[in-house]
Each structure stands twice: as structure tokens, then as C-alpha cells.
Design a protein around this nucleic acid. Structure first.
Lengths: 213, 213
DNA sequence: GCTTGACAACTGACCGCCGGTCATTTATTA
DNA sequence: TAATAAATGACCGGCGGTCAGTTGTCAAGC
């Protein structure tokens, strides 16, 4: 039904998926400044107005793509955390490796920062945050378990899970083009490439979980 | 010479300072989406075109304001690091406290992220990064000294100093209005308010400096 | 001290383009 | 063929940025 007209609910859902897929592909190909709704519509062979039948704003479209990718990453983490035992150093490696398997996600993190600050409404920020906390909770529970924290520390573990998600934004610095053009390594120690410093920083953070109140 | 015409070099420099001061004041009062060059010009009683006689782009104006604030914070850090001895825990407290003394800086960090990603050219990114590394180097040297690292580890200490600067962006989540409207605490463990988790996270990071190669 | 001319600080109408809207068109089916 | 809703694209306000023209300023000439 690529060029056809969406007739029923299934068709509309398929078109929505088609838009999301093309948006992700486009984000990986062009700079954000070149990512316009008009250009996306052109790639899809649709009119710009059609996109707004499926997503109320550009930001909503972006957040939908982002939440899907992040959700898949959470699923991947949870699945691996459920098998076997993970000490602090291995946890650090796990986070780094699983993120390296999701380069598109890392690519979108800096964009999220800018979009949240520039265009989002309070209700949307609240909704996004609620979703994030809900998804992070199982990860936090696993951290409790693997790091040997008591249940009473659950709140603190959750706080650290939040911190991790937030910190992940740092793992990718800027767009690949910018990064390539810079002589020196990325600013952030937490970065996408599998680098010893990333493990060290994460391991230190995990180890910190076991310290003090 | 507020409303007068800039006649010589000193006048032009004064006008430039006037623009920078008003821009900073405006950034603290309005949302970024309401921060337009036209509105800034109106606040100054100037025409929009005049602003472009002093700053080639909006981003250049922002980066100038930002680099000044960040530079002052670096100066503050260096001055305090130069006096006495600082262990890892006290270093963490120092970073948190000095940043709390610069709330405008924390406010601008998330905006930086968005602007760097959206609008910057490669040359500008390179210049910004070069400036940042130059300013971070003395801090890194002090970290070496206080944490008892050998000179051979200098490169690694510099990397961590970079990581810290990058991580500082995380310390302020979103704009104050957004933050106030959210029921729950900020996402990031690294935040502006003086919170035990901030110290803990920084302390863990500093402690990590002394571990492993 | 006054006029004048030249220079440059300053202006604001204008441009292209963006995200977003909505009256109209058109494909589809009962 | 009539009814319905998906799709359209001309259109809007406002943005960052431009530039030919305007005007304040000062120094030179009388």
C-alpha cells in the first residue's frame, strides 16, 4: 500500500510505520538541519500535510522514533541482565556493548537534548519522563539484584538508573560528520566506541552504588 | 552611548558588551523559543540588522556568551584548586559548589547541546573544541596534582577533565519552568542543586582516575 | 563658527525557508 | 452514483539572515 490510500485502521497503522521507518532512515543520512517535514514527505512520495494526519508535530514524530529505539535497547538490556550474574565491571561492559549495538540510538541522543529544550510543552515533557521512569524501573530492579543492594535501597537504585539513561546522552558527542572532522577524540569519556574509559567510568559509577547511604 | 552611534573602536566594543549583557539577561528571562534576534534587538532599541554588524550569526552570539561564563567558572575553579590540598571527595564537593554559584551557566548548558548539534559548522565546532581543551588543560594539571597522578598520566587526566566538562551539561536538566512543573526530581544525578548523589557520582569518577591504566 | 563632504554605523524592507493549517480534491466502496 | 475520509498543496506567520539606502558624526576648508 506504499502509494495507495489508507482505507482502514490497519492501513493507517502501516502508513504510520512506513513514516517512522523512513524518518529513522533519513535521520541517519542527513543532518538535522536538513531534516524537514517537507523533505521527509518527498522521500515518501506524500504531501507534507499528510504527515500531519499521522503525527501532530515534528517533535512528536521524533519522540516516537526515539522511544521505540530506546525501548528496544531497554528490552535488550533486561534480557541479558536476566541471565546469569553480573558484577560491577561486567555491568559496565554490558551497557557499553549493548549501546554499541544500537548506533542509531546513540545518534539520536544529542538531538533529543535540543528538541526537549527548544520545542516541548510541559505536558509532553511530563509524559516523556513518566514513560522513561516506567521503562527504567525494571533495569533498576536488576541493578539492585546484581549489585547486592537490599530492597530498601530500591529508590536509590532507581535514581542511578535514571542517571544512567541521562548519562547515555553523553555517549555520543555530536553527529558523525562533526566527529570525523575533529582531529582529537570525542569530548566525552562516555562514548559509543568501545573504549576502556567508558568501562572505567561506568564501573566507577556502579561501584559508587555500593558506597555510603 | 546606549542609544548613540558607535564612532570608534572603544564605542564598538562597548556596544558589543551591551549586546552580550542584554542577551544573557534575556536568556534568563524567556524561553529559548522566544529568544529571537528581533526581540533582542527590540530590547536594545536597535534594528535587527545592527546585531549582525557585531555577531555574524545567532549561534556565534550564544557561543560568545557561553564561553565567557564557562571561562569565569574555570577561573574560579583554578583559583580554589591552587590553594591547599584536595582529595577526591573534597574535589567532588568543590565542583558541585562552584557550579551552584553559576546558575546562569547551568541554565545555558542544555541550550549548548542543541545548538552545537543543529546549527554549527565544522570549523566552528573545531574552534569551540580547541578553546575548550585549552581552558581545561590547567584544570587537568591540578587534578593530576591533587589526586597524586604522575606526569605520565597527564593525557588521561586531561581526558577526564574533558569528560567532566562534558558531564556538566548534564547537571542542569531542562529549563527551570519545565523542572518545576515536573513532580519528580530531575533525571540526572548530576544536577545543580547541592545533592548528595552529585557528590557521590563525582567522587566515584575522581576515584576512578586512580584505578587501572 | 559654519558649511560641506565623505565615511561608516545603522536601518528595516525584503528573502528563502521552516513548521504547521485547512478548504478542496480524489480514491474507494456500499 | 452518492457518501466518506484520506490526501493534497497553496497558504500563513515568523524565523535567521541580507543589503541598498539612510543618517549621525567628524574633519577639512573657508
Amino acid at each position: 500500500m506504499s502509494k495507495l490510500r489508507a482505507r482502514n485502521t490497519e492501513d493507517k497503522e502501516a502508513r504510520r510505520e512506513q513514516i517512522l521507518a523512513e524518518a529513522l532512515a533519513m535521520w541517519e543520512e542527513v543532518d538535522y538541519s536538513d531534516f524537514t517535514m517537507g523533505a521527509l514527505a518527498a522521500r515518501l512520495g506524500l504531501a507534507k500535510g499528510t504527515l500531519y494526519l499521522y503525527f501532530p508535530t515534528k517533535e512528536e514524530l521524533f519522540l516516537t522514533v526515539f522511544e521505540r529505539l530506546l525501548g528496544e535497547w531497554f528490552d535488550l538490556l533486561e534480557a541479558r541482565l536476566a541471565r546469569g550474574q553480573w558484577g560491577a565491571p561486567k555491568l559496565a561492559r554490558l551497557f557499553a556493548e549493548t549501546l554499541a549495538e544500537r548506533p542509531e540510538l546513540a545518534r539520536l541522543f544529542p538531538l533529543l537534548e535540543g528538541i526537549l529544550e527548544h520545542n516541548i510543552t510541559l505536558e509532553k515533557a511530563r509524559a516523556y519522563k513518566g514513560w522513561l521512569l516506567g521503562r527504567a524501573a525494571p533495569i533498576a530492579a536488576r541493578l539492585e539484584q546484581h549489585l547486592g543492594l537490599g530492597e530498601a535501597r530500591g529508590v536509590r537504585a532507581l535514581a542511578y538508573a535514571q542517571a544512567l539513561v541521562s548519562g547515555l546522552r553523553q555517549m555520543s558527542d555530536h553527529s558523525p560528520e562533526v566527529r570525523e572532522a575533529l582531529d582529537q577524540p570525542p569530548l566525552s569519556v562516555l562514548r559509543v566506541e568501545f573504549h576502556p574509559d567508558l568501562e572505567a567510568a561506568l564501573a566507577a559509577l556502579f561501584a559508587g552504588l555500593r558506597e555510603k547511604p
